Amino acid sequence: MYKVIVADDEPFMLEGWRTMIDWQGCGYELCGTATDGEEALELIGMVNPDLVVTDIQMPVLDGLGLIRTMREELRYDSQIVIVTGYSEFGYAQQAIRYRVNEYVLKPLVPEEIHELLRSMIVPLELQRQETAQLFASEQLEAAQLLDTPAEVNDTIGENDLENMTSHAKQLLTLMEAGDIKGITTAVDQMMQEIQGSLLGLSLTQSMVLYIHGELLRKYRVLGADSMLLQDHTWHQTERWITGELKRLFVRITETFAAATQSDAGTGGLVTEAVQYLKQHYRSKIKLQQLANHIHVNAAYLGQQFKREMGVSFSEYVHRLRIEEARRLLRRTNMKISDIAFELGYHDAEYFTEKFKALTGELPSLYKNNSQG
C-alpha cells in the first residue's frame, strides 16, 4: 500500500476524497486529510506519505506554497497531484519547477481518480526501488541521473525555466495537432540541448512529468487508450537518450492524429446515442451509462453530443420527456403526477418546473387548453 494525504479547504471535497475513492482497491492507504497547507505539512511530517494530493487555493498556506516548502525546504520527494482548474503559462512554470506529477480538475469524478491512481503505481514503485538502491549504494549511473539533487532546484534560472515551459507547451501543441514530423524534430532538438547537462536533464524530467499530467487529462476527453500513459519510458531517463522518449511521443501524436481524422465520423456516434435515448428516455439514464453502452469516454461523448445537437445530453433527455408529456396530456386522462412518474421524474414539482421551462406554461394549463 502507498501512503496518501489529501489537503483541501472545502469540507465537501474532503468528504468526497474519503468516501468516493476506493483507495485500497487502487493500492493506496489514505492516512489523513488537512484543510490548509500548514496543517498538511504537520501531517506530512508524521506520515511521510508516498503521495500528496492538494488543492491550489487554500487559506494560511496555499497548494503551491505547500509544494514549494516540500521540495525546497523539507526536500520531500513524494509524488504530488494538484487539484486545479489552472492551465495557463504561469501555472505550468510552477508545475515544472516543483516537479508536480499529475493534476485533476474539479469536480471529483471517481472513475477518473481511480484511473489516475492506477497510472501512478509505476512511478511510485520506481521511486521506491530508487530509494532502496540509494540506501544500499547500489544504484546505476542512470539512477543517479534520475535523482535530482536538492542543490539543483535552488539554481534553476528563470530563463532555463521559461525555456523548458515553452518546450512543454510546444510539444503538447504538436501532439494535439497530430504533427508527427513536428514532434520528431522538437524532441530531437530538446535532447540535443540537454545532453551533457545535469541541470537540463533534471528540468526536462520535471517538464516531462508536467506533460504526462496534461496528457492524462486530454486522453480522458479523447476517450483514447491511456495505456501509453503507463509506459515506463515516462520515468526512465536513461532510455530517453536512446530515442525511447521520442518513440513514445510519436505514438501519442499518432493517437491524436487518428482521433482528429475520426472526428468526421462522430456523427455516427451521436446518432447512435440519440437512437438509444429515444428508446430509453423514460428510464433513469446517465451520460456514463450511455457512454458505456456505446463504448466511448463519457466526457468525449458529452462534448460531441453538445457540439452536434446544440444542447447538452441532460437537456436533450428533458426535451424528449416533455414532448412525450405533451402527447400524454393531449390524448389521455392520466394525472400529471402519473405522467411525471411514467417519464422518469420521481418529483411532480420538478417535472412541472421543467415542463414550464420548455413550453412556457404549466402542464395543467396545457392539458386544459389542448383538451378543452
Rank of each mutant, 00 (worst) to 15 (best):
F12W: 02
M13N: 11
G16P: 15
T19W: 13
I21H: 10
W23F: 11
L30S: 06
A34Q: 05
L43C: 14
I44H: 07
G45H: 08
M46R: 15
V52L: 08
V53Y: 07
V53L: 12
M58C: 06
P59M: 01
L64I: 01
E73P: 04
L74W: 14
D77R: 14
I82F: 08
I82S: 06
V83A: 01
S87W: 15
R97I: 04
R99D: 04
Y103V: 12
V104N: 04
V104E: 01
P107A: 10
P107M: 13
V109S: 08
P110W: 00
L116Y: 12
M120W: 13
V122A: 02
P123I: 06
P123Q: 00
E125G: 04
R128A: 06
Q133G: 10
L134R: 14
L134P: 03
F135H: 05
L140E: 01
E141K: 14
E141L: 14
A143Q: 11
L145T: 00
T148Q: 09
T148F: 07
A150Q: 00
V152D: 10
D154L: 15
M164F: 04
H167P: 11
H167V: 10
Q170V: 00
L172N: 07
T173I: 08
A177S: 01
K181L: 02
I183L: 01
V187C: 04
I194E: 02
Q195Y: 05
Y210N: 03
L215S: 02
A224W: 14
M227D: 11
L229D: 01
D231I: 07
T233E: 03
Q236R: 15
R239L: 07
T242Y: 15
L245C: 10
R247K: 14
L248A: 03
T255K: 08
A257P: 08
A258N: 13
L269Y: 11
V270Q: 06
T271K: 06
R282C: 00
I285F: 13
Q289E: 06
L290A: 05
N292G: 11
L301H: 06
F305Y: 13
K306V: 00
G310R: 03
V311S: 13
F313W: 08
V317E: 10
R319C: 00
A325Y: 10
R326K: 13
R326V: 04
L328N: 08
R331G: 03
T332Q: 01
N333L: 12
I336C: 10
A340L: 10
K354H: 04
K356T: 02
A357T: 06
T359R: 05
L362F: 13
S364E: 13
L365Y: 13
L365H: 10
N368C: 09
N369Y: 08
S370D: 02
